[in-house]
Computed example of a mutant assay.
Amino acid sequence: MRALLSILIFGFSFGLWAQNETHFEKANALYNKGQYAEAIEKYETILDNDQHSAEVYYNLANAHYKLNNIAPSIFYYEKALQLKPNDPDIKNNRAFAQKMTVDGFVETPQVGFSKIINNTINLLSFDNWAILAVASVILFVILYLSYYFSYNTNKKRLAFVLSLLSVIVALIAVSMAFQRYSLDKKDQPAIVFAQESKIKADPNTSSDEIIRVHEGTKVQVLEAFNDWKKVKVSNGSEGWIPSEDIKLLNSF
């Protein structure tokens, strides 16, 4: 029974994959013909089938860019970068799309010790820091056993020093893993989809206006209250924006 179920699941998954490949090829063909709106529909069909890839997001962003759809193009370039963060083509095209935005906020740069710490934390993902920690612990055990059973003084000394270093690396990796997890959990980027939106001092329409943002601007969501989101703009300004005016990037 389980074997039959596995075969059925595999067959369904393969069929869905083949269907998505067909949609992708048709979408690309439409894009190459300059039928960008039709191509967008095909790409979105793939996403509706819960198939997420950097290639689909990238091509979808390109189609929106051709139609001068500022917010969607930047949104999907950002989605593509989440899956391929170091892809030069995605970064380059995103930069072109960002030039269409009205807002030209300059991001407040990190300086000093905090910059060094954050750069170190971001060297590896949470999973990779965790793997490094486990590998260091295993190495410590091997080195400690080598130290314990060795009768050669020089070998014992070397094994002892290396085991201590492996413990230190393990502790640092564990610390970095927790820090990276915390940063990832706090990281809630979003793109403004409203043509113009007023960021308020409090989560209500009658409160004072702090700043105005326009479509395509990237913000960081800090917290939520009813139909409002507290956001931070790259220039450091913070305030409340209607939830309907932005679209979260971390939702798939």
Rank of each mutant, 00 (worst) to 15 (best):
R157I: 11
A177G: 12
D208F: 11
W240R: 05
P242R: 01
L83N: 04
L183P: 00
W228T: 07
A27W: 07
K33S: 08
S13F: 09
D48S: 11
A29R: 12
E223A: 03
E21F: 11
T205P: 02
E25S: 13
I70P: 06
S206D: 12
M176G: 08
T101D: 02
L249P: 08
N204Q: 09
A135I: 13
K185H: 10
E78V: 03
Y151D: 12
A194K: 10
N122L: 09
V213G: 09
H52A: 07
K156R: 15
V161N: 00
S166M: 07
R2S: 03
F14E: 06
G104F: 12
I117N: 05
E41G: 13
F140R: 08
F225Y: 14
W129K: 09
T120G: 02
P72L: 10
K185Y: 09
I40Q: 09
N92E: 10
I70H: 05
E44P: 04
E38M: 14
L5T: 05
E209M: 11
S6L: 07
L222Y: 08
E107T: 14
K66Y: 12
I90M: 06
V167E: 04
K66N: 15
V102L: 10
E25T: 15
A135F: 11
D48W: 00
W17D: 08
L165E: 08
N92V: 02
P85A: 13
L165Y: 09
I46R: 00
K84P: 01
V213C: 11
F75Q: 09
W17Q: 05
S182H: 04
L158H: 07
F178T: 12
M100W: 09
S6Q: 05
H64M: 01
K230W: 01
I131F: 15
K230R: 07
Y57N: 00
A190S: 08
L132N: 14
N122F: 07
G11I: 06
A39R: 04
V174H: 01
K99I: 03
V137Y: 13
N20T: 04
I211N: 05
K26P: 03
L165R: 06
K26S: 14
P88Q: 06
I191D: 04
W17A: 10
V169T: 15
A194P: 13
Q195E: 15
R212W: 02
N93P: 05
N204S: 05
K91Y: 10
A54W: 13
L83Q: 10
P203Y: 09
S6H: 01
